[in-house]
Design a protein around this nucleic acid. Structure first.
Lengths: 222, 222
DNA sequence: CGTAACTTTGAGACGTGTCAAATAGCGTGG
DNA sequence: CCACGCTATTTGACACGTCTCAAAGTTACG
């Protein structure tokens, strides 16, 4: 569990144990554990750290004015999160499962960004990637039906996991529903339907076997 | 129109005639006119320029795999758009009405960003703001009903126009529908309903008078 | 004025939400 | 190890909102 990839810097943002690499620089951090459902930081709290997921999974969430929950993003091992320019967080973060995170003081990164153009560039790339994801998400929420959203979600998870065939979902149906802006029941029905169509198999509700990637891709496109 | 106001930089991104200011630097550009519905740039075309709206209005759009149109954002006078890190545009841009734009060569800005930390910082701020908007948009599309979306849209337009009471909509119902992920008919019905509720008046279909801001805010929250 | 594009209104179909209940899974303590 | 109770998930029936299709009305412009 401890020997997570000591791979070399693959892109502008990569990983080292107990540190976060941004562009050419590796920032020393502290490793912390969070229990399932524990809050990592809260909305409108000051932004003091940037985080990297070592193990487990994290969700970032917002609430509408009338109290409905919207999951902004899921963060899996290797992902950075919590980086914001403003003084206060625009959303909160919670551990989906027990997890290990690396925390780096924001001031370290801010300072480096005012000294190194490569760091500044890497941060811009990071924000730009998040922007792309957010727009993709808006497109999915606006233009796709329930089945298409779930299919797209599974495909994107498969892509991130690098295991095209078998997926362990760290999150509950409720989390998926709040990410895709659906209800638990509708998400559940979408899974059942995909199973009936032989696109996936569900040995357990949290374990997905992709039987036919093309069927999923077709569903997603619908 | 032509006299170079040497106004001081108001924020990280501000404007000068025939130039685009990013942080401390003003980049010289060219002014161009585009006719209603003319394409400014196309999806997957190379990113050669950054644009600022001088007059008129622009929409940036994407298409889903099955051909449905989604408007990513509306750009009003003063707004920058078209800035992307990748080689190719992820969306296309079209003139909503006849408009004047200032174009600055991307290479100028890219170069400055590798020389000036303030420029790099301003670009990061720009991307960060766009990210915030995109997430807000995703929240609206995912969690709000038709009336709430239209109310939120009008309020955000009012905020941008700095005229809280009277709004001239440069875009058609079809554009609003494709921005809010609704149909033309549903958008039209929402307008009619808001008129019945005395939240707004519609002297013409493109001119909105805000009768009761609080009513709109209540509608938006629902 | 005449024509085309845009907007509004209406009626019915369809999909997702809501409410309710059954089932499965899982950790805890006996 | 089993029994229990809690949570998560699945399934069903029905309600509601938005889309679809159709048509009338309005506006802009040649």
């Amino acid at each position: 569990m401890r020997d997570l990839q000591t791979e070399l810097c693959g892109g502008p943002v990569s990983r080292h144990d107990d540190a976060i690499s941004i562009g050419p620089k590796a920032f020393p951090g502290t490793r912390m554990r969070f229990a399932r459902n524990e809050e990592v930081f809260g909305e409108s709290e000051p932004v003091n750290h940037v985080y990297r997921v070592v193990s487990g999974a994290v969700r970032t969430i917002r609430f509408t004015s009338d109290g409905r929950r919207q999951i902004v993003a899921f963060h899996l091992p290797g992902d950075l999160f919590g980086f914001e320019l403003g003084a206060a967080h625009g959303f909160s973060a919670e551990a989906i499962a027990d997890c290990e995170l690396v925390l780096v003081r924001r001031s370290l990164i801010e300072k480096a960004a005012t000294e190194s153009l490569d760091v500044a560039r890497a941060l811009l790339q990071l924000a730009s990637d998040e922007l792309h994801d957010a727009r993709e998400h808006a497109l999915v929420l606006g233009r796709k039906g329930a089945g298409e959203r779930v299919a797209a979600f599974l495909l994107s998870l498969a892509e991130r996991n690098r295991t095209d065939k078998e997926l362990d979902l760290p999150m509950s149906r409720a989390d998926i529903a709040d990410y895709l802006a659906l209800t638990i029941e509708t998400v559940s029905r979408a899974f059942t339907q995909m199973e009936r169509d032989h696109a996936i198999a569900l040995p357990t509700s949290r374990h997905v076997v992709v039987r036919s990637r093309s069927a999923l891709e077709q569903l997603q496109a619908a």
